[in-house]
Every structure is written in C-alpha cells, then in structure tokens.
Simulated scan of single mutants.
Amino acid sequence: MAISSVSSASSASAWSAASRASGSGLSAEEQRIVDKLAQRDKEVRAHEQAHLSAAGGLATSGASYTYETGPDGRRYAVGGEVGIDVSPGRTPEDTLARAQQIQAAALAPADPSGADRQIAAQAARMAATARIELARQDSGSATVAAPAAADADSAESAASTSAAASSRADAYQRIGSMQSPAGGGIDTYA
C-alpha cells in the first residue's frame, strides 16, 4: 500500500526542519533538492490517487512508483502508474459504460499526462465503436418495422434513414478500428 502523500511530504518537511535545526550536514543546494523531491513525491502520489479513485473496479493494480533517492537518503516518488483494464465489455452497453469510466479515470488528475490523454482517446474510440453497435442494433429493429408501415413513402424514408445511419456507422467503425496506443496502464507520470 502506498504511503499517503500528506504523510510523506510532512515527514520529509519535518525531517528537513529537524536537519536544519541540528545542522545535520545538508548544504543549501542539497536541501533545495530534498524540498523539490518532496514536492514531486506529493504531486505524483496525488496524481496516481486521482486515477485510482476514478477507476473504481477497473483498476487492475494499485499505484506503482518509480523512486529517486535524495541527498537525505530517503526515497521519493518521481513517477507512477496505475493499471486499468481497458478491455471492452460483453455488450455494447457495457462497453460504453466501461469506456466512459476509463476516460474519466485517465483524465481524473488536475494535469493529465500525454499517456493519460492517449488512454482517454483510446477510450473515446471504444465508446464510439459501442455507440455504432448500439445504432446498428436500433436500426436493425427499425428496418424490420419499416416494411410494415402502411404508407410506401414512409417505408422508403425509413430505409433511406437506415442506409444513412449504416453509412455513418461504417465510417465510425473505421475510425474506431484505427490503431490505438498499446498498453492498458494509465500514465507514467514523468
């Protein structure tokens, strides 16, 4: 389990204050580095926690961190990643809901990284594909009902509308099948 950013930052600050008071050997430059690392640690942990909170049941792992050791001998998180299940659902409705949650998790931090934005774009494509499938299902039931219409003009109009929807669906399908970034982790916060 990850140490909370507040306790990490406050313990680093407490240690910094104690070391300054006791003159325990950190130069002003080393202290500046420690302070910068402590701030980075706090930002990274908050960023990854935002992903975890929004991911809910789609998180496949807790946050994992990349560390750097400061001049004070302590390890500070300078990068991180949260594993997210980005697979589609069993139904178009489920896929759409999952895609929306993935996108929300990817964009949850105040400052999403480039990798976060790529995952959000991948989720948007997955949502578009699910919407296309839902539209096909809806147009399939509308096409069956259209010939039963009493008026031949309304049947022709319904077929025309269905063909246009199918054409749009085909275009969206091509967009949805475009190459997406590999991987299922949200972010390497670097």
Rank of each mutant, 00 (worst) to 15 (best):
M1V: 13
A2W: 04
S4Q: 11
S5Y: 12
V6N: 09
V6H: 08
V6C: 01
S11Y: 07
A12C: 12
S13V: 14
W15G: 12
A17Q: 13
A17I: 13
A17P: 06
S19D: 12
A21Q: 08
S22L: 15
G23D: 11
G23T: 07
S24G: 06
L26R: 06
L26P: 01
S27D: 00
S27V: 00
A28Q: 08
A28D: 12
E29T: 05
R32Y: 07
I33G: 02
I33K: 15
I33R: 13
K36Y: 08
K36N: 10
L37M: 02
A38P: 03
V44M: 03
V44R: 03
Q49P: 09
A50R: 12
A50W: 12
H51N: 07
L52C: 02
A54Y: 05
A55V: 11
A55I: 09
A55R: 11
L58H: 13
A59Y: 10
S61N: 08
S64E: 09
Y65M: 01
T66I: 03
T69A: 07
T69I: 08
T69G: 02
P71G: 00
P71W: 01
D72I: 03
G73H: 01
Y76F: 11
Y76T: 08
V78L: 04
V78W: 04
G80N: 01
G80C: 04
V82D: 02
V86F: 05
S87M: 06
S87A: 15
R90C: 00
R90K: 13
E93A: 15
D94L: 11
T95L: 07
L96I: 11
A97P: 05
A97T: 13
A99D: 02
Q100W: 02
I102Q: 02
Q103V: 01
Q103G: 07
A104K: 12
A104V: 03
A106C: 00
L107T: 05
L107C: 06
P109L: 04
A110V: 09
S113N: 09
D116Y: 02
D116H: 13
R117N: 11
Q118L: 14
Q118N: 14
I119N: 08
I119K: 09
M126N: 05
A127M: 06
A127R: 10
R131V: 12
A135F: 01
R136I: 03
S139Y: 04
S139M: 07
A142S: 03
T143D: 02
V144T: 06
A145L: 05
P147R: 09
A149C: 04
A152M: 09
A152C: 03
D153W: 05
D153K: 12
S154Q: 13
A155T: 15
A155S: 14
S157A: 15
S157G: 08
A158G: 06
A158P: 04
A159M: 13
S160N: 14
S162K: 05
S162D: 14
A163T: 09
A164Y: 11
A165R: 08
A165K: 06
A165Q: 10
A165V: 15
S166G: 14
S166V: 05
S166F: 06
S167V: 04
R168D: 11
R168S: 13
R168P: 01
R174F: 00
R174I: 00
G176K: 00
S177Y: 05
S177H: 11
M178K: 03
Q179M: 05
P181Q: 15
P181A: 15
P181L: 14
A182V: 08
G185C: 01
I186P: 07
D187F: 00
Y189E: 09
A190E: 14
